[in-house]
Amino acid sequence: MKIIVLIKQVPDTAQLSANMNGLQLMASGPRIINPWDEYAIEEGLKLREAHGGSVTLLCLGTPDAVETLKRGLAMGADEAVLISDPQLAGGDSLATARALAAAIEKIGAYDLVIAGRSSIDGGNFATAVQVAALLAAAQLSYVAAIKAIDPAAKTITVERLMEAGRETVSSKLPAVMTVVKEINEPRYPSFMQIRKAAKKDVPVWSVADLGLDAGQVGAAGSQVKWSQIDLPPTREAQVEILEGTAEESAKALVDRLLAEKII
């Protein structure tokens, strides 16, 4: 099986603290591999282990995103490609998907593209789906389990985690699949693999390499942009104790949770 895994480098939201707010984190905080993407890589590796083939990682990002690819290589991926070009900056999900789809086509024939459900920075739930739309491949989102896969017959059956429950869907391959965390437990790279990964070459593809015009990608190729970014209203650090009888405190809590649109 030829598997391509889309990964992204994101700010590590676990580093948010009294000493680092969201803006500071976005600007200069430590970067990690998007947590869901580790599950995507793991699923790719498991499929390769079961059915043979190869796993290629594809990441669009700044040059230092190569660290994220190295992490994925250390987990066991065969190859990695970084799409990096100043022209890509400021791209919305579709502009990003265009570059990714072009890169996938450059890589050539594939059976399955796997990505995380969403990223912890943009949280668009969109890029991988849009890659599927651009590639005209079948799209399987929120996959919690692969029930069956037959690379020879080019079919796959998955379980999708939806609000109504677990939906079993069969599909033709090639397909694009996004995964949720239930699907597996990502492996921790061994030192041996980290060392091997460090020596691997990661080619960097520019917009021109992908055969795209500057107007199709990055801010120039985008139809939405973040025009303003703010910190959410600060809250009292102290806990608010809800007093009263059980019924009163329950009502007070539900009031607050609904008012804050938490549920």
């Binding site: 920075d121 939405v224 973040w226």
Partner: peptide
């Protein structure tokens, strides 16, 4: 909300 709720973004659309 973006960055898992730690930032709030305004989204402006193109043409």
């Amino acid at each position: 909300p973006v960055l898992v709720g730690n930032l709030v973004a305004k989204i402006a659309f193109g043409d």
